[in-house]
């Protein structure tokens, strides 16, 4: 495929496009697949908003106005809320002081707005995550309200943790007499995530943990799930990246060279030769335009690996449809291409 045949970002913006929600409704399976691939950070917030039906309707506007009233006011939990954002994602450099302030402000406003739930530690992670995606405070507030009220997350944070307890009861096997054997070594690595394998700790009766014991097993399950998603995600990440490059390559090439170099330097540190080779197993062939090949070779991001990639790429698979849907969706959201 010739580089000249590729639509530029300007041309993409002029294309007729469906509304974001309609796009998502049209092919939810594709969207689900795309979400697993990883939505481009710049578009993530818009897709998330669509997912919770936050689209500037009368109710949303009212919430936004309400937030403006509440902003800057101090809740009963102000002291704790002041501390917790500093303990939220402490190792994440992107969670800057400004984002922490945003999270504090939204949490304070929510604690006043919903006096029954108020503030509970754990909510800071949710708001922190939202604050990483946008810097529009009223949007974060409205989104959080939507999650807590419409998606019932408030049940995890209300006094007595009704949803947590319900989950624990469902996960717990019938009460049994605990073993008197000593506890085995903890399966969790120091400073790391919970171990993925290993026997579940069994504790002597007199030191048996309380109702959350089975949630520990649940946490390990989540870790395993996360790992699986990451591994599988890589196999779709590479073709997705290439496909996106295929579409937006022209606009990328127009950017100053240092930015591009930085982008690919970052990419090359994440994807090692072995990881790529592993990821290539099962990857469908992607039609790679010459200019993308040339660009990648110039950037030197994949060096020898790139040649191997080209040889091992197999025919297009269903993933192509997913990528196409993503691009449609991306354009539908604000008219600009991804990246």
């Amino acid at each position: 495929m010739e580089a000249q045949e590729q639509p530029t970002s300007l041309e993409l913006q002029r294309c007729p496009r469906p509304a974001g929600a309609a796009c998502m409704a049209r092919d939810p399976d594709d969207l689900r697949r795309l979400v697993r691939c990883g939505l481009p950070p710049a578009r993530r917030w818009q897709v998330w908003k669509e997912a919770v039906r936050l689209g500037g309707g009368p109710g949303d506007r009212e919430l936004s106005t309400r937030y403006d009233d509440l902003r800057g006011k101090s809740s009963d939990f102000a002291e704790l809320i002041e501390v917790d954002p500093r303990l939220t994602f402490p190792k994440d450099e992107d969670f800057t002081e400004e984002r922490r302030r945003l999270a504090s402000s939204v949490l304070n406003a929510y604690a006043i707005w919903d006096s029954v739930v108020g503030y509970c530690q754990g909510m800071n992670y949710l708001v922190g995550l939202l604050a990483l995606l946008t810097d529009v405070e009223s949007d974060v507030f409205s989104f959080f309200v939507r999650l807590m009220q419409h998606f019932m997350l408030s049940g995890f944070f209300s006094d007595g943790f009704p949803l947590l307890r319900r989950g624990a009861r469902r996960a717990s096997p019938p009460a049994t007499t605990c073993s008197s054997a000593p506890s085995p070594p903890c399966t969790r690595r120091p400073g790391g995530p919970p171990a993925l394998r290993g026997p579940r700790p069994r504790l002597p009766a007199e030191v048996a943990p309380g109702p959350l014991r089975d949630l520990a097993a649940g946490a390990r399950g989540h870790a395993a799930l996360g790992r699986r998603q990451i591994c599988e995600g890589l196999s779709v990440l590479v073709p997705a990246t290439v496909s996106i490059l295929r579409v937006v390559g022209d606009s990328l090439l127009e950017k100053p060279s240092p930015d591009l170099q930085q982008f690919f330097r970052k990419t090359s540190t994440i994807i090692t030769r072995e990881e790529v080779a592993e990821a290539m197993q099962g990857i469908g062939l992607i039609e790679i335009p010459d200019y993308v090949t040339a660009y990648l070779e110039d950037a030197g991001a994949f060096s020898g690996v790139w040649e191997r990639l080209k040889r091992r790429l197999l025919p297009w698979t269903h993933r192509q449809r997913g990528i196409a849907a993503l691009l449609d969706c991306e354009m539908a959201l604000d008219g600009s291409p991804p990246l």
Partner: peptide
């Protein structure tokens, strides 16, 4: 106590944690 080093970037505890 467990690791003989300070836990940098510690986040608050949700529920209960365990060490031995």
């Amino acid at each position: 106590f467990i690791e003989n080093r300070y836990k940098k970037g510690s986040s608050h505890t949700i529920g209960v944690e365990f060490g031995s």
